[in-house]
Amino acid sequence: MKFLIAIGSKEYSEPTLRIGMRVAKAFKASVTICYVGPKVSAFSSNVVRLAQENLERWEMELPGVDVLEWAFNFLAAREYITPNIIETGFQKNMLIQSSGSRSELLLQGTMCKDVRLILRSGDIIDELRDEVAQNKYDVTIIGGSQKRRMAHDLVQFIDSSIFVVNKFDYAMRYGLLVPVNDSKSTPKAVKYAVRVAQAFDIPVDLVTASRKEEFGESYKNASDRAATMMRRSGIEHRQHFKVGEADEVIKKMAGDDHIVVMGSSTKNPVKKFFFGSKQIRVMTDAPFPILIVK
């Protein structure tokens, strides 16, 4: 499996990187850590590049390289990269420009073969979408954003599962909340939930929400199948059947002490864009980390 972890700054990206690496380890995934620098107006793009080349002549770091160096040190401190790479240290001159605005530094990992550090610049959604399309990542991990539109665009346009590490508190004892129903996306979400629960060693709440008082057979079966999978994986779990709008039920049950893992919407993308989806509504207001499995 391939994971993409998008980081923004040293100050705010530590939880994203820490949680991202932990989940990636559970999946034994190869990891790419990506910093996307701000978009430069097309009017000034060439002169900015010229100025940055001049900075390199003065042995000055390009913007974003310090963030990648911080990520390197993070990986080194937790031994996610091999001892010989740690000993060599962060070599910024090893950042190789692989295309227009993309530079890459390849490291040898300990939990998987490859760990890549990537530097990009431009609109974050465009850049992540392009990175995912080019390298076929399974999961994109990103920190929470204050921009409501960001959640919508991530779910709508990035063609991989999305894990948004919203407001993660190390002191908190989290549970895992997994909404299950009879949709096609649920089985994959449950599989991912198993790995995440194992990675964090936390109990799982399986919640099935229905607008009606009566729960159909398909809903009950979906919940039972998920429960069976949890039991076989040795994960402590509980089944819940709640009446109400799914997104409201999920937000209420998740509170601020759950990591939510849910399947992606099976709605037509056009409908999803104009009318939203349960996933987008949950993610937009989520005060908790949320993984949407595609």
Partner: peptide, 14 residues
Amino acid sequence: AVAAPACTIVYSCG
């Protein structure tokens, strides 16, 4: 920061 190339250049250093 986008009004003039000189502003964009200094802004781009982060």
